[in-house]
Design a protein around this nucleic acid. Sequence first.
DNA 1: CGGCGGGTCAATCAAAAGGTTGACCCCGGG
DNA 2: CCCGGGGTCAACCTTTTGATTGACCCGCCG
Lengths: 219, 219
Amino acid sequence: MTDVRVLLVDDHPVVRAGLRAMLTEFEGISIAADAADGKAALRELSRLAVLGEGVDVVLMDLQMGAGMDGVAATAAIRKLAAPPPVLILTTYDTDADILAAVEAGASGYMLKDAPPEQIRQAVFAAAAGETVLAPKAAALLMNRITNPGTSLTPREVQLLELLATGLSNRAIAKQVFISEATVKTHLVHIYGKLGVDNRTAAIAAATQRRIIRPPGQAS
Amino acid sequence: MTDVRVLLVDDHPVVRAGLRAMLTEFEGISIAADAADGKAALRELSRLAVLGEGVDVVLMDLQMGAGMDGVAATAAIRKLAAPPPVLILTTYDTDADILAAVEAGASGYMLKDAPPEQIRQAVFAAAAGETVLAPKAAALLMNRITNPGTSLTPREVQLLELLATGLSNRAIAKQVFISEATVKTHLVHIYGKLGVDNRTAAIAAATQRRIIRPPGQAS
DNA sequence: CGGCGGGTCAATCAAAAGGTTGACCCCGGG
DNA sequence: CCCGGGGTCAACCTTTTGATTGACCCGCCG
């Protein structure tokens, strides 16, 4: 049985070094390569493919300052011929992040502050084709299928995120290429589901329930 | 010349491992210990002091989920008898983070996405008693001393906090026993100082600059 | 003492946001 | 095949917010 070959994708050299050090200490895991952003990850994948060296798991951060971000990179990887499973390893456990990652085709969602042993298990599980979710991610998805009426749709979450950045209805409309009327419609739905009646209260509620990340907590 | 002895403080095992791996590769640096939060850092410092093993530089993250955060830890360390220099190594370069760190007595402010070589130089500089700032940190402090007139008054901060909870102008007025007109006046001033033109953008800006805590985050 | 900054309030107008109703399209499942 | 949910848009009206102007009080400081 050969090692599980991992591709690390994270924009922080420190984190890459940390994962490399941590994972190589485990039996049965080796680091195939690392990349600082999504584009570099795709390059590494094709480079390794040419060499005949497969990658068994991609370990991907979601927040990446420059270049292609984690969601886009995950989606791109899943479109390859024989895509390796993508395990998201990130800092935040907000609904928005989790949903985006799952929709993009991630096969797992773990948090960076997880103990090393959990990360090790997650890597093996992902390599075996299993889905592995952090507790909060699992709970969110369960809740989503049991009572879909009260939870926000992906579109609504998207607008909520833009809302939280301080954009006006008109600005949001332009951003997502819909009319201002539609933005209002969505917002009314959002207010109803969150039990509020204005945008600032919606931001507060959504932040509190960890539907969105606090404003301005980017990379 | 003995090695520069470093104490790592970061709540993520991955990051601690990364810094450890990265720094130990450099000549002249060794890791004295690491800690997951502020309290543990102080414990480590006193433990090492008892052993007669000094610490030359504390490498500190600002954001730490549980326990004492980076700012408080920095302040506490600076109150020790022979405090080692504290070099902040964090993810965000927001105004309030930088200001809080400098006010707490940090002798440097670096970003985690800095290349390893820069981090190495910063550690040596800090150990030598020098001050080392990331470009944005330096720029902010320069700007702050040249035009100090742009900061919010305590009253304005108070209204901003209420604003962030989702209250309407009228509700804010009742809360602090002033008229709605006065609330509007304050908001106009706040918008001017923050460079925004509506309440949601004010919340985003204030959160980003850590003037207020993200909505629904316990203090 | 005289000003100045912070806090208070009012009136007014313009702009944005909120609420309602109704409509159309598309897709997936009973 | 029809229904329902999600997404889109429009028209309309009410309420809230934002912007401007001007005013008063108070405490501090030169």
